Amino acid sequence: MKIQNHRLCEAHWQPSPNYNQRPESMAVSMLVVHNISLPPKQFGGSYIEDFFCNQLDCSAHPYFDEIKDLQVSAHLLVKRGGELVQFVPFNERAWHAGVSEFEGEANCNDFSIGIELEGADDVPYTQQQYQVLAQVTDCLRAHYPDILSKRIVGHDDIAPGRKTDPGPSFDWPYFKQLIKEDIS
């Protein structure tokens, strides 16, 4: 995998309006793993992409009325089959973490890259998702060397009590086996 101009060459580019600039001189130093499915626990279709691009047809499902006023995004989405969609360049601040803190640092959007897995807390992720996520992680860490293994976290790690994703179905030990060790 390759990154050019803060975009992953292997990802389909679908720009989201839901981002802004990172604080000046803020280094990318964290990767946050999330999950999303729209409607909940239903996979496929373009609802996630539509949601991150503020184009979700809220009449398509009753749940969408609950999220119609949200403006959120992530840097990347890994679909069930391993397909990649990028919404925000990595050097910009995507709106994925919300109210968050890690090791005393608040506002994790300022220094993190958010990757959404199409999934749900209690639905097993696919082998393709683990493989692609590991490849993306290794590529990101080569490009942004401040992302150490201990700073690859779940949304639940930076927003405990508020968020639960990627959930108990995410196999952290397996994922950590797939990624390269810290070089430092």
Rank of each mutant, 00 (worst) to 15 (best):
G114I: 00
A11R: 04
I183G: 01
E49V: 08
I36R: 07
H34W: 08
K41F: 07
H75T: 02
Y144K: 07
Q21C: 07
S112Y: 00
Q55C: 10
Q129M: 13
V72M: 14
V72C: 14
A142D: 09
P40M: 11
F170A: 05
V28M: 12
L140G: 06
K150F: 07
S59E: 14
W13H: 13
Q4W: 02
Q131T: 15
S16P: 08
N91G: 09
P40G: 09
A134S: 14
C139E: 14
I36H: 03
Y130C: 09
R80N: 10
C53V: 09
Q42F: 02
C9N: 12
L84K: 01
I152F: 08
C58H: 07
M1R: 09
V78P: 00
R80A: 14
H143M: 02
L133S: 06
S112V: 02
R93G: 02
H96G: 10
A159L: 03
A94N: 07
H6R: 03
L70S: 13
G81V: 02
A74V: 07
V28P: 09
N107P: 03
L178H: 03
F64W: 06
A94C: 13
W95K: 10
H34R: 08
D122L: 10
V85E: 01
A159S: 15
G81K: 12
P23W: 12
H155T: 03
K2W: 07
Q128T: 05
G161C: 08
P39A: 04
M1D: 10
P15C: 08
E83Q: 15
F90W: 04
S46W: 01
G45A: 06
Q128V: 02
D122Q: 13
S37H: 08
V33N: 04
E181W: 03
R80Q: 15
E92H: 14
R141F: 11
